[in-house]
């Protein structure tokens, strides 16, 4: 096989531990035995290929893709940024899937029983792809905070879920983007499970440059996926 290059390892100084006791659901769902090291083969350095062809005309505009009889309620925002690898190389034409609560903090998902209103004009799911320089953008409504059952008076900070493939099965990432200045961040066991030095990478920056005058506030959120090893792997 030719051009058999692997990817740098998951950096466990960047990612949360599987077992993070303050996030109570991890107790019965986290692997307890050490992960088994696996040398990367063609199985790991390949992966599903999704790009612009997977994005429908309204998929990147969550203010319109669920509208039935008008506009969704809430604060319109634009989220934009670059998807890069650890060496700062742009990752072009890579798919990003997003999902989030509405402005009231309620998900469309049937299992969400939070007593806050659904918005008949907001769905909350969408997708976009990066351009040749790694830039992506989507328009949405700023999601609301909502309570959850982790502990008494637990509230999730405002957040948007992101799912990315990158160039291989090894670069797969699901994460959450948070908003700057949110007082709930310091109380959230999911955010706080992240190593302290890495937490800032989950928080978007307000961006006047990305703000569309008269329409929507802008937020900048860059995403970094695993980079490529510099030397070819052994077969």
């Amino acid at each position: 096989m030719t051009d058999k290059l692997g990817f740098k390892p998951r950096n466990w100084n960047s990612h949360p531990a599987y077992l993070s006791p303050d996030y109570k659901s991890t107790a019965l769902r986290s692997p307890t035995k050490p992960l088994v090291p696996l040398a990367q083969s063609l199985s790991e350095i390949t992966g599903p290929v999704y790009g612009h062809e997977s994005v429908g005309p309204l998929d990147a505009d969550l203010t319109r893709n669920g509208a039935t009889a008008g506009e969704p309620l809430g604060e319109r925002i634009i989220v934009t940024g670059r998807v890069l690898d650890e060496d700062g190389r742009a990752l072009p034409n890579t798919l990003i899937e997003v999902w989030q609560a509405n402005a009231a903090g309620r998900y469309v998902h049937a299992a969400d029983q939070h007593d806050a209103p659904l918005d008949p004009n907001f769905f909350g799911g969408g997708r976009c792809a990066t351009n040749a320089e790694g830039w992506y953008a989507f328009k949405t409504i700023k999601p609301g905070a909502y309570p959850w059952g982790n502990h008494l008076n637990a509230w999730r900070p405002n957040h948007i879920h992101f799912s990315l493939f990158g160039p291989s099965f090894a670069t797969r990432l699901i994460t959450q983007m948070y908003f700057p200045g949110d007082p709930l961040l310091d109380l959230d066991p999911i955010f706080l499970a992240t190593p302290e030095a890495a937490r800032g990478r989950l928080v978007a920056d307000f961006s006047l440059e990305a703000t569309e005058p008269g329409v929507a506030l802008g937020y900048r959120f860059d995403i970094v996926l695993r980079g490529r090893n510099e030397t070819p792997m052994e077969d």
Binding site: R10, N11, S14, H15, P16, Y23, L84, D85, E86, D87, G88, H161, L173, I174, T175, Q176, I190, F191, T194, P195, A198, R199, R201, L202, D222, I223, V224, L225, R226, G227
Partner: peptide, 9 residues
Amino acid sequence: TQKQTPSQT
């Protein structure tokens, strides 16, 4: 050099 974006649930 960039650092990996942390994973979340």
